[in-house]
């Protein structure tokens, strides 16, 4: 039996310990905000927070998620919108929007560690997250806007 916390709720799982966290979140818990994009940690669409760090849930087996605190886009902020989400809306980042849950989770993790990221920090942190619509310049702008809009 694997125990973990997802968005503040204690959960237990007795299925295949090799099952990636992504499919547990989506198919078992119905938390579909986290997306499937590649299954190989190549695109970042499945990014969630594990104990505050951005991880790729598509290659994180349930056995590796055991005992940890998982946070998904549905619960990024306890009350209202997270500053990153507000910035994303202000800059009008999404086009199709499919990758944006992962982008936002990655950006939120970056800003929690580096509140004032440089251009290089942003590139380094975000290079694992693909946006096929090509919203990158707005992602950069939104991260800077979120950094400036600190509470």
């Amino acid at each position: 039996m694997i125990r973990l916390r997802v968005n503040g709720t204690d959960r237990s799982f007795d299925g295949d310990p090799e099952m990636p966290l992504l499919w547990y979140l989506r198919d078992v818990l119905g938390l579909t905000g986290t997306k499937f994009g590649c299954g190989m940690a190549l695109c970042g669409a499945c990014t969630v927070h594990q104990n505050g760090d951005a991880i790729r849930s598509c290659v994180t087996p349930m056995s590796a998620a055991a005992g940890s605190e998982i946070r998904t886009i549905e619960d990024l902020n306890k009350t209202g919108l997270h500053p990153v989400q507000r910035a994303w809306m202000q800059v009008n980042v999404p086009q199709c929007g499919y990758c944006q849950s992962g982008q936002i989770m990655q950006a939120a993790a970056l800003l929690s560690k580096k509140p004032n990221p440089t251009d290089q920090d942003i590139e380094a942190a975000m290079a694992g997250n693909i946006c096929r619509c090509g919203t990158y310049q707005r992602i950069r702008a939104a991260i800077k806007a979120a950094a400036e809009a600190k509470p």
Binding site: T32, G33, K35, Q85, W88, P94, G97
Partner: peptide, 21 residues
Amino acid sequence: MPSYDLEDLCTGKAGFGMDAR
């Protein structure tokens, strides 16, 4: 006008084909 779905797209609530259940 921004996308009608803008907030849903930023909060994981938007319903894509992958999310149909």
